[in-house]
């Protein structure tokens, strides 16, 4: 059975690129346009990994990370931050909030897939 990954990004085109990359590798994909939308869509889902942007309207990526870690079902779900932010301070904030990896956009599909296969839950 294919594993499910949730993509959280306010850019529809970016979500599309990530989705194409992941579905091409055999993963199921769920999409959300910001942190709030993602939290609403998490209920009743079995998510094996999440890929989230940082700068988003309504709820940014770091706030989303903190909120997700409060949910018992997703306390240990690996989350990859995929963002244009490359600053060390922001990375540290992501790490402190519970991110497992930080990928700077634009990403190479094979690099993202490497990170996904390394971190995704069995």
């Amino acid at each position: 059975m294919a594993k499910t990954i949730m993509i959280i990004d306010d850019s529809a085109s970016l979500r599309q690129v990530v989705s194409i990359t992941l579905t091409g590798a055999g993963y199921e994909v769920l999409e959300a346009c910001d942190g709030r939308d993602a939290l609403a869509k998490l209920t009743g889902q079995k998510i094996h990994l999440m890929i989230s942007d940082v700068n988003m309207p309504n709820m940014d990526g770091i706030s989303f990370l903190k909120a997700v870690r409060e949910l018992p079902a997703y306390k240990f779900t690996p989350i990859i931050m995929l963002t244009t932010e490359a600053g060390e301070e922001m990375k540290k904030a992501g790490q402190a909030a519970g991110a497992k990896a930080w990928v700077v956009k634009p990403f190479k599909p094979e690099l993202l897939l490497t990170a996904v296969s390394k971190l995704i839950l069995p």
Partner: peptide, 16 residues
């Protein structure tokens, strides 16, 4: 195509 998909991501940067 994979390379093209990388370049298309610049839309996200432009958007920001």
């Amino acid at each position: 195509i994979s390379e093209t998909l990388v370049h298309l991501q610049f839309q996200d940067r432009i958007g920001q």
